[in-house]
Amino acid sequence: MLQNKKPKAVPNQISISRNVNTQNANCVVMVSPKEFSFNPETAVDNEFQQQSELTQEQVHQHVMSEYGSMVQGLRAEGVQVVDFDYTLSEKPTPDAVFPNNWFSTTTEGELYTFPMACENRRHEVRADELIASLNASGRNVEKIDSLQEYAEQNAYLESTGVMVKDHVNRTIYAALSQRCDREVLEEYAKRIGYHRVISFQTALESGHPVYHTNVMMAVGESFSVICDEVIPEFERRFVIKSLSKSKQVISISVEQMNQFCGNILQLETVNGNKVIAMSQSAYDAFSPAQLAQLSTHGKLLPFDVTTIESIGGGSVRCMLGEVFLPTRKKLL
């Protein structure tokens, strides 16, 4: 954790006038799993990862098929997908398929990059290439900011992996862990003008915290899904009370969390229709009553990403980097 550290000044920082944010993005960045494999560095604290008996060639075939089907499925529903095909380097990035951990965007045109806990995941941060891809897709980046310097102090904040945002109410929910430092979290919230940060402890059966908040909870425009039983009781009541003020709260069990029922994301199509992306594993693990509740908030879009989520320890939401950047205006 940080000890009496002051954030460095941001060069060329410009004043941003912030409007009321929309909850859902209608554009996402997805990254091909062309280097995908079991990552022993992340497995240290990611209890969702599993070794596979498949050969690496078989794994590659499976994950490329899963990825392609998900890209095609989202586009067919009217969600814009920026297929970010990065340049290979000497240092492989086995978890690049999970881009939501290293960047985030705002409706004011800001792009933020974040300090990653695992050394080999830091090589995923390719801001210049990402900006080029976003610009080519008609999305403008007006300002770049970074908190990556905190990695030098062993303080990490893995973007929307550890931060689940209620954009409408300018509130961030975050489970504290090695990958989510409280002081960096509060610094980021201050920079983007979010006035409430609700951070809390979690504990799995092993006694270890949940490695990423977005595997245990999701927040949509008017609903939330949360595995609240992993939160200590005195904090649990506060979190649920906060969510309940403006959301329908759908509570899931640890068993359902292990099937990635918390790792879902509400999106909008270009026509403004609501959809909820999730894995087939999550869809199958929700009860009929829970599916009925979720269906009132958008069309359910289950994708089979079994290989990616079992080996990588992350699922559909982790594969989606939301793009809130303004759309470039066409010249007349």
Rank of each mutant, 00 (worst) to 15 (best):
M1L: 11
V10H: 02
V10D: 07
P11W: 07
I14V: 15
R18V: 14
N21E: 15
V29C: 02
M30E: 13
V31Y: 01
K34V: 09
F36L: 03
F38Q: 02
T42I: 11
T42Q: 05
T55A: 05
Q58K: 15
V59W: 02
D85L: 10
S89Q: 15
E110H: 04
L111Y: 00
F114H: 02
M116Y: 06
A117H: 04
L130A: 01
A132F: 08
N135T: 07
R139N: 07
K143N: 09
Q153K: 13
A155M: 14
G161A: 04
N169K: 08
V184E: 02
E186F: 05
I192D: 04
G193N: 13
R196F: 11
V197A: 09
F200P: 10
L204C: 05
S224F: 03
I231W: 01
R237H: 13
S244C: 08
K245D: 09
S253L: 07
N258W: 05
G262F: 01
G262K: 00
I264D: 00
I264M: 10
Q266P: 14
L267R: 00
M278Y: 01
Q280K: 08
S287E: 11
A292P: 12
K299H: 03
L300D: 12
I308K: 00
F324V: 03
F324S: 02
K329V: 15
L332N: 08
